[in-house]
Design a protein around this nucleic acid. Sequence first.
DNA 1: ACGTCAACGGCACATATCGTGCCGTTAGTG
DNA 2: CACTAACGGCACGATATGTGCCGTTGACGT
Lengths: 196, 196
Amino acid sequence: MSPSSTPRRRGSERTLELLDVTLSLAEEVGYRGLTVEAIARRAGVGKHTIYRRWPTIADLLLDALSHVWSSELDYRSQGAIRADLREQFLRSSYALSHAPLGPIYRAVIAAAQSDESLRAAIHSRFLKTVEESTLERINLAQQQGQLKSDADLAAVVEVLVGSLYYRWLLTDRAIDEGAVDGLIGMFMDAYGESGV
Amino acid sequence: MSPSSTPRRRGSERTLELLDVTLSLAEEVGYRGLTVEAIARRAGVGKHTIYRRWPTIADLLLDALSHVWSSELDYRSQGAIRADLREQFLRSSYALSHAPLGPIYRAVIAAAQSDESLRAAIHSRFLKTVEESTLERINLAQQQGQLKSDADLAAVVEVLVGSLYYRWLLTDRAIDEGAVDGLIGMFMDAYGESGV
DNA sequence: ACGTCAACGGCACATATCGTGCCGTTAGTG
DNA sequence: CACTAACGGCACGATATGTGCCGTTGACGT
């Protein structure tokens, strides 16, 4: 055969290839297609090649999430707190609502409902990061006098993040600009220093 | 045989029996045991008897949820808004965190992540009720002058409910008195009329 | 250039679940 | 007492999981 057909066996390159196949499956068939069999089939790979790398499909999906999500997490931190939150929430919400991140994340969260340690893994690998970066950003705003100084911001962050995830996971309402503006408006009404 | 052994075939009584078996399975083996096969096996019933009543397991679980949840939804509405919210949130959180409601609800929510219409069904059958009854209670408080008159309470309710569900579904933090008091404290700080 | 060996693809297997079909039995109705 | 629908039990095909086996391939050291 000509060298055009893909050569086999490439160690860690195979790993990236499998992550890409996982992402493209999520693009095309969504949550339902994210099985070990389907991924192996599409990748032209034995199931062992997947199980050798990830003990369960959840671990694969967690890595696939990391692979696609890294650029979404950091705040730009350059403008007013209201504008920065708005941009960050809209960007995150867009990612949640579209392939490939949306279907994969949904699949992991669904699986986590029957696996407490997976729930903890999701929280420590993703949600904790979201909470912490948001906390840093509003802590900065508080230091700059844009927020009341007596607010318990750590608790506030959980409420902000929770509100978005609730809407995403459990309602059929979109996380649109109206929803984000409403949430941030509420936050600023409650904690913004008047006049900011 | 003596009449002591259960007679077969009882129409709508069988339906209630199946709901009870579903609840007891959730008690004992949790989320993982909630399969049609397992329920049929424990009930000593052919699978048809289940499929004849509910097109999918999700529909069965929705009915089982209704069966066990009806008494948890209504506010007592007799005290101060802060105390009423506290009691209601703690009661709901306890139900979410314990069998049989917790495992069944988790199973339905997991299934709903791959089924948009199921997500809508959950929202309209349960979450909408929760949101509405909470909204009614804090609307009453607003009319009684316990809350600021310009607050957008409908949006606030989504945030309150979302915060509890987020913690329940996606973190390993318990919804304890501290969490509830923190949430309500934030709500009252933001919207309570000073001195209430 | 050649050997070695782990990674690999392909296949099969045991197990579990889903949803459906069939059949003989049983309970409620007229 | 006969009729009929609901029923329990069983089997089936389809699909997924996780593991085992086998022959092949490619990267690496010598």
